[in-house]
């Protein structure tokens, strides 16, 4: 009993002095970090000018305007509330389009992400530096080929008449398959061509991170007689988990972007049911109707979902003792 009152009694003046001291301590901490704030200022200014000032444009989603009406119309036009959002949600194809978007980009993440990691591990095991460099350099070639060209290549390779794949199918006595017109294959084609295009480029960060691993660790493992696979598993992989975690979090934020241009270049009505994504849907809506507010509303909707996804991923990463974004 007495001890408690005692603590309460003495605690009071202490907290009062504590806040003052905390404030002073914060102030001196800020002063101590002066140099770092100087470093931060130009970058923060950039984000405020080029990202925060234009952000008022989001209100277009709640209005009914066309871009050519100019900036004044953004403020003067009347509010229409959630009209455009509701229109999107009530669309006959809303669920179809959402499903396609998440499936296509989900598969891309599921296959593309580990593929790069695996290739980086394989490259890391190559002892001959010359060979390693050549393979590395070749592997990122596809990254520089623009989407238009990739789409053209895909059409050529898969053509029922002159395509290589169908030549193989026919050689084994099969009927030529119309891949791009068949809902069974369309998503796989998108995912495969995505992996082909990004796998090499994706290794760069991993390989850079691997340079930070202490060679002494491998040395010790070798003396212990650990095989190369075990070394990769127990030394290389743990050494680059921070970068894997952050890349994964950032990629999850992009789950609602399923690669607009390539889908647009490759799809057709026969595969709409598996290929129509949010962005192509909005594109078709906007094409006939100059519907800028609708497009913005769908964009806002996508952003909010993306934020929830990233927050979730960051939370999970922290739970698993990984560095999150914050």
């Amino acid at each position: 009993m007495t001890p408690t009152t005692h603590t309460v009694h003495t605690a009071r003046p202490e907290t009062a002095a504590g806040t003052g001291a905390a404030r002073r301590r914060l102030w001196s901490a800020i002063k101590l970090h002066r140099f770092y704030y100087y470093l931060i200022i130009p970058g923060m200014l950039y984000f405020i000018i080029f990202d925060y000032i234009p952000m008022f444009g989001v209100i277009i989603a709640f209005k009914d305007i066309s871009p050519f009406e100019g900036v004044r119309a953004i403020f003067t036009s009347e509010w229409v509330g959630f009209k455009h959002f509701v229109r999107f949600w009530n669309s006959y194809y809303f669920w179809n389009v959402m499903r396609n978007t998440l499936l296509i980009s989900g598969y891309k993440l599921l296959f593309g992400f580990p593929a790069s990691l695996l290739l980086a591990l394989l490259l890391n095991e190559v002892k001959h530096t010359g060979f390693k460099r050549i393979v590395q350099t070749i592997s990122y070639l596809p990254h520089f080929i623009s989407t238009v060209v990739v789409a053209g290549l895909v059409m050529m390779v898969l053509s029922t008449d002159s395509g290589m794949i169908n030549a193989i199918v026919v050689a084994f006595g099969g009927e030529p398959i119309h891949f791009l017109g068949d809902p069974k294959y369309f998503r796989s084609i998108l995912v495969l061509s995505h992996v082909w295009q990004t796998i090499g480029w994706g290794t760069i960060l991993y390989l850079a991170a691997m340079t930070g691993i202490d060679p002494g660790l491998y040395e010790a493992a070798r003396i212990d007689g650990a095989s190369r696979l075990r070394q990769a598993w127990h030394i290389t992989l743990p050494g680059i988990t921070p970068i894997i975690a952050i890349l994964l979090i950032l990629s999850i934020g992009g789950l609602l972007n399923a690669g607009f241009e390539k889908v647009l270049l490759l799809y057709s009505p026969s595969v709409y049911s598996v290929a129509d994504i949010i962005d192509t849907y909005v594109y078709r809506e906007g094409l006939n109707k100059l519907n800028y507010s609708f497009a913005t509303a769908v964009g806002v909707f996508k952003n909010i979902l993306a934020m929830i996804l990233i927050l979730g991923a960051n939370y999970v990463a922290k739970k698993m003792n990984q560095t999150g974004i914050w």
Partner: peptide, 21 residues
């Protein structure tokens, strides 16, 4: 500060305000 930057990854003002800026 990190949060302020993170939000810019997700929310964009769109083309019109950027163009005006």
């Amino acid at each position: 500060l990190v949060l302020i930057i993170f939000l810019t990854m997700i929310f964009h003002g769109g083309l019109i305000p950027n163009y005006m800026l």
